[in-house]
Design a binder for these strands. Structure first.
Length: 444
RNA sequence: GUCCCCUUCGUCUAGCCCGGCCUAGGACACCAGGUUUUCAUCCUGGCGACAGGGGUUCGAAUCCCCUAGGGGACGCCA
């Protein structure tokens, strides 16, 4: 029988990172085994704005590249895929239990009569787990609506779910679910309980309120979806061969529940950032430019620069800095000086550079030599600096450092010669002229 | 309180099932050098862990037991 798994989120208006990881593991499992990945919406809570909440969820899924074979917008033969539309199915199944004498009314609610037998599951992740369900539990509230455990089992059963992959927080619920499956005379599906994601500081699992816990945040910050997906895959799963940067195709072919860890994993935003940076550096130019520009526009960074779709200077600047960046949302701070003349000199850079040798004199010499240059290329500039350094018996750094400070106001940035080339001859000389005439002073 | 799950570097993990190849491997972070051009790039190196205690065994990170710690579930929430 071909594998059918489902991701069954409740639309809350947020797409939590833990849910996303559960969705990802289900998706990988389905794709790896050539099965079906079903999206089922547990929208029984009418209080929330379900339209909006659903949109957040679907957008998050798409952003991560998790496509579903059945569910909202995709349809399928096992619908409806919204719990709110399945009441007739639930009622019918309640009647089945009633007929078997396994459901009874008490204080207005309907209780399920447990067998009290130990329930054994051979969990795909954790191995044999045994637990006994001692007490009868409510399956229909006194207001007539079915509760989670009941609908969950009925849905899995009627949708032909073969494997239930979910968070470990459901492990203790599984005995209830097994009781129900058996009451219906149905063999329970296989279960795989994956570890939880713990908050990086303090005790407990990650919650909506923790920083970095929402997928939409990474979208807004223009993280690369493939990077987030890659990081999430590594939380609680390992390919066991020391590889970490893995494409969707590689993840699909390598993933299986046997590689899933039993212990909970702490969320580590630094590792996520690292992986995101790897993806950022590896991005093809066109894709990178599109991503960067869309972020700048969204962040309202210098409208006059981002307005035109072919601002060549902006593109050159962005490309020059690509390999240095950690994240897209750090671009504005990193490139701003390319676009203004009145940038400030960073105190710590001034302190570091202005104290050594005679920086103003070195810059003065460079301005003089560079203004004679006919070709403004990396090779020509390098030759120019090397020649000056040799002639004056000093290292090239004596020129490069103050010049960088002069044209950018900082001591960090892209490769020096590339920097000057992108800035162009006019901007470079103009900036250095200002530096010579009004050099920064060390304070403190 | 009851029940369930887990326990290798600060963090994510490999190794554990099938004990010896483990003086425990990789990655992030951190630190130090290098790239005689910066650094938020890149390269090299360093730091750093088998929770504790009992067994079993010639031999245990690997098997068993106990303790401790962490997490989760115990709702007419999902």
């Amino acid at each position: 029988m071909s594998i059918r798994v489902r991701f069954a989120p409740s639309p809350t208006g947020f797409f939590h990172i833990g849910s996303a990881r559960t969705a990802l593991f289900n998706w990988l499992y389905a794709r790896h085994h050539g099965g079906k990945f079903i999206l089922r919406i547990e929208d029984t809570d009418r209080e929330r704005n379900t339209d909006d909440a659903l949109r957040v969820l679907l957008e998050g899924m798409r952003w991560l590249g998790l496509d579903w074979d059945e569910g909202p917008e995709a349809g399928g033969e096992y619908g409806p895929y919204f719990q709110s539309e399945r009441n007739a199915i639930y009622d019918k199944h309640l009647q089945i239990l009633r007929d078997k004498g396994l459901a009874y009314d008490h204080e207005g609610a309907v209780f399920f009569k447990v067998s009290g037998e130990p329930q054994v599951i051979n969990d795909l992740v954790r191995g044999r787990v045994e637990r006994k369900e001692e007490k009868d539990f409510v399956i229909y509230r006194s207001n007539g609506s079915p509760v989670f455990h009941f609908v969950n089992v009925v849905d899995d059963m009627t949708m032909g779910i073969t494997d239930v992959i979910r968070g470990e927080d459901h492990l203790s619920n599984t005995s209830k679910h097994c009781e129900l499956f058996k009451a219906f005379g149905v063999e329970p599906p296989r279960f795989g309980h994956i570890p939880l994601i713990l908050k990086q500081q303090g005790p407990g699992k990650m919650s909506k309120r923790d920083a970095g816990s929402l997928i939409e945040e990474y979208d807004h910050r223009h993280f690369i979806p493939a990077a987030v997906r890659n990081y999430l895959a590594l939380l609680g799963w390992s390919p066991k061969d020391n590889r970490e940067i893995l494409s969707a195709e590689e993840l699909v072919s390598l993933f299986d529940l046997s590689g899933v860890t039993k212990n909970n994993a702490k969320f580590d935003e630094r590792k996520l950032s690292f992986i995101n940076a790897q993806y950022l550096h590896a991005l093809p130019a066109a894709e990178y430019l599109e991503l960067a520009r869309s972020y700048l526009k969204k962040a309202n960074w210098r409208d006059e620069e981002t307005r035109s779709p072919d601002n060549k200077y902006l593109d050159e600047v962005l490309l020059l800095c690509q390999e240095k960046l950690h994240a897209v949302d750090s671009i504005p701070a990193f490139i701003d000086y390319f676009f203004v003349f009145d940038y400030q000199y960073a105190p710590k850079a001034v302190k570091k550079i202005m104290k050594k040798g005679d920086p103003v004199q070195r810059v003065r010499e460079f301005v003089e030599a560079a203004s004679q240059l006919e070709e403004w290329t990396e090779a020509a500039l390098e030759k120019c600096i090397t020649t000056l350094a040799e002639a004056n018996g000093v290292g090239t750094g004596e020129y490069i450092h103050p010049c960088r400070l002069g044209v950018s106001g900082t001591n960090a940035g892209p490769g020096f010669y590339g920097l000057l080339v992108v800035l162009g001859k006019d901007r470079t000389l103009e900036r250095l002229q200002r530096f010579v005439e009004n050099p920064p002073v060390v304070v403190g």
